[in-house]
Simulated scan of single mutants.
Amino acid sequence: MAPRGRASNDLHESQWFRLIELWEVGHPADVIMPYQGLIVLPLAVITYKHRHSTAVKVIVRLGRRTGDQMAKTASPAA
């Protein structure tokens, strides 16, 4: 269920995750801002009781993604 305060036409969190994952395949650097939105927006809705656990879940997911991307782009030691 979406936190209170979101418009009724907003996508559910799981739908956002799926869209971000699809976009990430071809544009890995472009997914940081959408992930940030999934962190900041729930935290702003103080009546949403799961806001902290939602933010932590997204932060962990973003950390994995950026770690994976950094590992792929890191050059081998010379």
Rank of each mutant, 00 (worst) to 15 (best):
V45Y: 04
Y48R: 11
I39E: 13
M70L: 13
A55I: 04
H50L: 10
K57V: 00
T54G: 00
R64C: 08
I46D: 07
T54D: 07
K72M: 14
V58A: 06
G63M: 04
R65F: 08
L41D: 05
R51L: 08
I59F: 05
A44Y: 09
R61D: 11
M70F: 08
G63I: 01
T47L: 05
T47P: 00
L38K: 09
V45M: 10
V40G: 01
K57S: 12
K49S: 14
V40K: 13
L41V: 11
I39T: 06
I39M: 15
L43I: 03
A55N: 06
L41Y: 08
V60E: 14
P42Y: 02
L62H: 09
G63F: 02
A55W: 08
R51A: 03
D68F: 10
A55D: 04
A71V: 04
A55E: 07
R65S: 13
H50Y: 11
V56P: 01
K49N: 13
I46H: 11
V45R: 14
S53T: 14
V56F: 10
V60G: 01
K57L: 10
L43E: 13
A71F: 09
A44D: 14
P42Q: 02
L41F: 07
L38G: 04
V45T: 05
V60C: 04
I59A: 04
K72H: 08
R65Y: 07
I46N: 09
K72V: 09
R61H: 13
V60W: 05
L38P: 05
T73R: 11
G67S: 06
Y48E: 12
R61Y: 00
V60T: 10
T66E: 14
H52M: 11
I59N: 02
L43W: 03
V60L: 13
L62R: 12
R64F: 11
L43R: 11
K72S: 12
T66Q: 11
K49Q: 14
V45W: 02
A55K: 08
S53W: 02
R51M: 07
T73A: 01
S53A: 12
A55F: 03
T73Q: 12
T66S: 10
H52Y: 10
R64E: 15
